[in-house]
């Protein structure tokens, strides 16, 4: 082709819109933030009563470990979280499947779910205390109700989105109803159910703390409440950091489960 003075490469207009994993960036942001915060406290720009230094929060945390109370608080919180979340999730999946599979259940339950889902469960806590007692019952029930509804919605959405072609294939091979549900619908709905776990786990942690702030002797929420009433901001920050760590751990576990169970996805 003859060289033409006006010839030039075609301008590039593609690229972008493709987020890629950048390892360590998240960690770096956190480290920088904490460093700025610490410096601010040491130089006196941030008043210790407004916000204690991260190092002070760390000291408070170590005191908590040394006193042996960390495991008491953590154990109480985690057992409420695990029992409430597991029960809420199992019930939610069961009801979500019923809604997804049976017209009658759908007609009856969907309006009910829509009506109760938006109620802040913490508003019902006094009611739960009357029903289930001031002890563990009311706390577990709050978490159970909080996780139940988002799981129902995620599950029946997932069941609705299972490829009808695959179900018809199952029928065409004469698979039993139970086989179709277990081998086609359940795995097909899993990609919608697992992300629902992230949301319900976050809700569970929020409700856990709220419930523990009302009448609990032990638990991370009780620890934070106590710190707040004593104006011990270093302890308060330490408690919040524990919650944050619980959240990160749960999210990591769900991420692993997704990787393992949804390996077949593109």
């Amino acid at each position: 082709m003859p060289e033409n003075p006006t010839s030039q490469p075609v301008p590039f207009r593609g690229g972008g819109f493709n987020p890629r994993p950048r390892a360590l960036v998240g960690l770096a942001v956190m480290v920088v933030l904490i460093a700025v915060w610490e410096t601010g406290c040491r130089t006196g720009i941030i008043h210790p009563l407004v916000l204690p230094a991260p190092s002070e929060a760390a000291t408070a945390f170590m005191e908590l470990v040394d006193s042996g109370l960390l495991w008491t608080h953590l154990g109480a919180s985690l057992s409420r979280l695990v029992i409430g979340w597991t029960a809420g999730t199992l019930l939610g999946i069961a009801v979500g499947f019923a809604i997804g599979l049976f017209s009658l259940a759908r007609a009856g339950m969907v309006p009910l779910v829509a009506a109760i889902f938006p109620i802040p469960k913490i508003a019902l806590l006094p009611l739960f205390i009357i029903w289930f007692g001031i002890g563990e019952g009311s706390k577990v029930a709050t978490i159970l109700f909080g996780t139940f509804f988002p799981t129902v919605v995620a599950t029946y959405g997932g069941v609705d989105n299972v490829d009808r072609g695959l179900i018809r294939m199952g029928q065409s091979f004469g698979l039993s109803w139970v086989s179709i549900v277990r081998k086609i619908i359940l795995p097909g709905a899993l990609p919608a159910i697992l992300p629902g776990f992230r949301i319900s786990a976050a809700i569970a942690i929020v409700l856990l703390v709220a419930a523990e702030m009302i009448g609990a002797e032990f638990g991370v929420g009780a620890y934070i409440l106590m710190a707040g009433s004593l104006m011990a901001m270093d302890q308060l920050i330490a408690g919040v950091a524990i919650l944050s760590t619980i959240g990160l751990t749960v999210s990591w576990i769900i991420g692993r489960a997704e990787k393992m169970l949804l390996r077949w996805r593109v």
Binding site: G165, L166, F173, L175, S179, P187
Partner: peptide, 23 residues
């Protein structure tokens, strides 16, 4: 035999064949 194959994406080749036999 379907136009879009209708294979279960979470099952291997052998698993997809096995699905039709398991019941």
């Amino acid at each position: 035999i379907f136009q879009d194959f209708a294979l279960l994406p979470w099952r291997s080749v052998a698993g997809n064949v096995s699905l039709a036999l398991e019941d």
